[in-house]
Nucleic acid binder design. Structure first.
Lengths: 212, 212
DNA sequence: CATTTTGGCTTACACTTGTAAGCCCAATAT
DNA sequence: ATATTGGGCTTACAAGTGTAAGCCAAAATG
């Protein structure tokens, strides 16, 4: 890669990083101004346009990057789970760790999910869809769940996890531990419930007998 | 009430209504400026301060009002459910109707829940807590669930419903119908799962036998 | 080597924003 | 009847915003 392209990539990164760094509990992406980001990245405001058409384009880049990063981390966590132990428990733990070390990556997904730009919402939804889809296949394979039930189950699980993540962002570590426990309970509910619905479908007879 | 107090209340309402009316999929409360709201309410920008200290105060008012309105509507719906039929199904239907007729009331809760102001997040959380608490008691009483399990169950249910609500805002009616169906399935999962966990606690023995 | 491209810069402009200061006059209080 | 209060207004200002126009030097191209 030429010297020029290298430099360009470098300041592009500086912009993305600058934006990520300015995110916090009090500062959402949509409240960031182009000038602020440029300032933090140490470039002139108008130079911003050499890299992104506008703030929207930068934001979408961040959503994509963030979602990807999150998924990679979660996948690593799942490998750890394969070594043994409760899948649910370990996944929740991984998630909480990821959250703690990359709060801003999670923040942009969380916030823009209910944000003001349709493009953003769609982008976040796509990322979440990835999570759901991966998990759905896992559930189908490992628990022999029917495809559509697996889908609903996975969706419910992901929603609950995301939601807990949002709550966790506002907490100190001690409370997060408790939150994690409650989350695990809720996830178990969904899993148990999905099993029950599956059985009911597979064999209405048997289920009727068992519930007596 | 004196003529003066009456007038004051009237323009105060005009401000709140103006703000609610400006909300949309593309426009969140935090993106509204004081001047815009004043303009829409037909008063001078600086007159705003005769009623609210700043936009934050107006916003919190809206959250409280909105949450209250939502709860009242849902309670009416629950009465309808008492006439018979699936509680879950009827509640979901009510919710979807409420959503359709008052999208902006729901929007402000949804958006500010993950918003940028701690005060807002807390206010929304308080409103949601009301929902959870009401539902939790209902579950405890009607299904004989233990208090802590009831709480987790209610929380999961409310989260799933809220989440579906957010998705519904972006949909046309036909798709909402499908969404509602899937939501019902998920809610049933939670209910079934909570039952299972309850049984396991009440009588680990029996449950072991049944699952064979 | 000569030319073109490009990523940075500076300057400039038109807007919007929040809010301070202070006037006015009708409703209230004395 | 007179004095006070208070909800509206106008004017004004400093600050910040997005972005257009155009210059410059160094890298890339031929």
């Amino acid at each position: 890669m030429g010297v020029r392209a290298q430099q360009k990539e470098k300041t592009r990164r500086a912009l993305v990083d600058a934006a990520f760094n300015q995110l916090s509990a009090e500062r959402s992406f949509s409240s960031l101004s182009l000038r602020e980001v440029a300032r933090e990245a140490n470039i002139a405001p108008t130079s911003f346009y050499r890299h992104f058409k506008d703030m929207n384009e930068l934001g979408l880049t961040m959503v994509d990057e963030g979602g990807l990063a999150l998924r990679q981390m979660m996948r690593k966590g799942r490998q750890r789970a394969e070594a043994g132990g409760s899948v649910i428990r370990i996944s929740v733990e991984t998630f909480m760790e990821v959250l703690e070390s990359n709060p801003n990556v999670f923040r942009i997904l969380l916030h823009e999910r209910s944000g003001t730009s349709a493009a953003f919402r769609a982008a976040v939804e796509r990322e979440i869809e990835h999570f759901i889809s991966e998990l759905s296949h896992y559930v189908e394979d490992s628990a022999g769940r029917s495809p559509d039930l697996a889908r609903e189950q996975a969706e419910a699980l992901v929603i609950l996890v995301f939601n807990a993540g949002a709550a966790a962002l506002d907490m100190k570590r001690s409370d997060r531990k408790l939150l994690a426990d409650r989350l695990v309970t809720q996830l178990r509910m969904v899993v148990k419930g999905a099993e029950a619905l599956q059985q009911k479908r597979d064999n209405p007879e048997l289920r009727a007998r068992l519930s007596r």
